[in-house]
Design a protein around this nucleic acid. Structure first.
Lengths: 214, 214
DNA sequence: TTGTCGGCCGATCGCCGACAA
DNA sequence: TTGTCGGCGATCGGCCGACAA
């Protein structure tokens, strides 16, 4: 798996990973399970030429956390640096600092699973009202129809433009021009999810979360 | 470079490689130039942990020849197995058996460099009369217009279908439906060449030869 | 509120003969 | 004989409101 070594915005990363995913903060203590690592890793895990038996779990200190995204699929993952602790330091109390320390009031974000109509070639994207009103830049509703160009950066910092229009009877928010190009280049299908997030600096970001295959 | 280990039809291989390319027959003697090999190979050549100086040329016997094609680009190449001979066997006479031993009367083949019109999207392929009359299956000229579906296998054995029509004033042979798909999937551009060949078993084959890149 | 559908319009694809090199 | 061009008809992409869940 090719990857960039530059961590991406942790808030965008978390929005893409979903609410179920929590990462231990730096300097917290965690257990490392070698067997589980080997079973879940895509590539083989090299435990070196260890001739001593590998213990089932090893208490470690989290030395570093990198938030990364696959450059091909945009799927997010993290790389942790773990420093093993001596068993004498094993201390079940206070082992996880129970983080959220890193200035993390939740930023405004919204995720939607793509419908067949969203993913269909030649179609647009039905923007749920909540997303359009709280995440997107405010539309000028005095125009007829209200329309704007929405600019969003993906996990690689690449810029995408979408025509955002509020039309139809009853009125609804839609992304039209630019949407199908995004779907094709990201190879999105119905069931995948899209994430919109307004970063703290005001930038709009877009991420994706792919459906579990088979 | 990924590759299949299965040799392809030597006649198709030679047609794609072009008339300037000659391969030594199996059991003939050739000189191997390590320096030239290292300079021309795409990947690094491993001469092992040789601590003795490498001689500039080594007389070898050709033990095997494999005719191969890159699975991505269709470009043909060969892999030779060379067995070094002792210097005492060095014998300048009769060193190359001057091959063509392998039952090789030239099969009917034709190569054409693609014009801008051939490679243009939305266009067809102007078939030179000689190719249409001697390589392609015979058209039924009593039909109006004379038209048929030409089926050809590429170096991987994949089947391609082309609509072959004889029309216009003055009359000329053209490939229409199926052609632009072939151009796009093979990523052909003006200046590349296409090769048609009628194999000994009667099958029509198609190969490509890419222009030298700047 | 929003997922899906058919209508429709414009862009592009690709087949055609004209013409000339 | 065949390379290039403009014309044009068919197909497709994609924007639209209607309608119903």
């Amino acid at each position: 798996m090719k990857e960039t070594d530059k961590s991406l915005d942790p808030q965008l990363w978390h929005a893409c990973a979903g609410g179920m995913v929590q990462m231990p903060p730096v300097n917290s203590k965690v257990f490392y399970f070698p067997q589980g690592h080997a079973e879940h890793a895509q590539s083989n895990v090299d435990f070196g030429a260890a001739r001593i038996p590998i213990p089932p779990l090893i208490l470690c200190c989290v030395a570093a956390v990198k938030f990364l995204a696959d450059p091909e699929t945009d799927e997010v993952f993290a790389r942790l640096r773990l420093v093993p602790l001596r068993n004498s330091e094993l201390d079940y109390e206070d082992s996880d600092a129970n983080g959220e320390a890193e200035g993390s009031e939740k930023p405004a974000s919204f995720a939607k699973t793509l419908t067949q109509s969203d993913a269909n070639n030649g179609g647009g994207f039905s923007v749920p009202r909540y997303c359009a009103e709280t995440i997107f830049p405010r539309l000028d509703y005095s125009a007829e129809p209200p329309v704007q160009t929405v600019i969003a950066k993906d996990v690689h910092g690449e810029v995408w433009k979408f025509r955002h229009i509020y039309r139809g009877t009853p009125r609804r928010h839609l992304l039209t021009t630019g949407w199908s190009s995004f779907v094709n280049q990201k190879k999105l299908v119905a069931g995948d999810s899209i994430v919109f997030l307004r970063a703290e600096n005001g930038d709009l970001c877009v991420g994706i979360r792919r459906a579990k295959r088979g």
